[in-house]
């Protein structure tokens, strides 16, 4: 069962990328985030935090560990809903 699940997942993933749908949604999310000022706000949030303790010993991993929760939580709810709708549409169209 889990083997076929993995296969299904791989097949959907493949179609998602190769159809260009992933790239389209990525572009969509990027634009919507920029529109709502999410990038700027997150940048300000992070630099505020580094102001206090300096930027030494910061790596991609520590950044992700520290700010991922805040970053996800601060995404406008509408964007999440819109994205979910579009993903569902893609799945409906491609699963039968």
């Amino acid at each position: 069962m889990s083997a076929s699940n993995a296969e299904l997942k791989a097949a959907i993933d493949r179609r998602f990328v190769l159809s260009g749908e992933r790239a389209r949604l990525l572009e969509f999310v990027k634009q919507r985030l920029a529109e709502t000022g999410w990038n700027d706000a997150l940048y300000a949030h992070c630099s505020e935090s580094f102001k206090a303790r300096g930027i030494e010993n910061v790596s991609m991993d520590t950044l992700l560990a520290e700010f991922s929760d805040h970053a996800r939580a601060s995404v406008n709810e509408n964007i999440k809903k819109e994205l979910l709708v579009q993903i569902k549409q893609f799945l409906d169209a491609n699963l039968d």
Binding site: K9, A10, D13, R14, F16, V17, L18, S19, G20, R22
Partner: peptide, 25 residues
């Protein structure tokens, strides 16, 4: 047209995917 293009694309360029989990994204 698009799926044709995709087919052509698959032949020309190997589809990049993770060697371990097969996923592309």
């Amino acid at each position: 047209v698009r799926s044709k293009k995709r087919k052509k694309l698959n032949e020309q360029l190997p589809v990049p995917h993770c060697t371990s989990c097969q996923l592309l994204s």
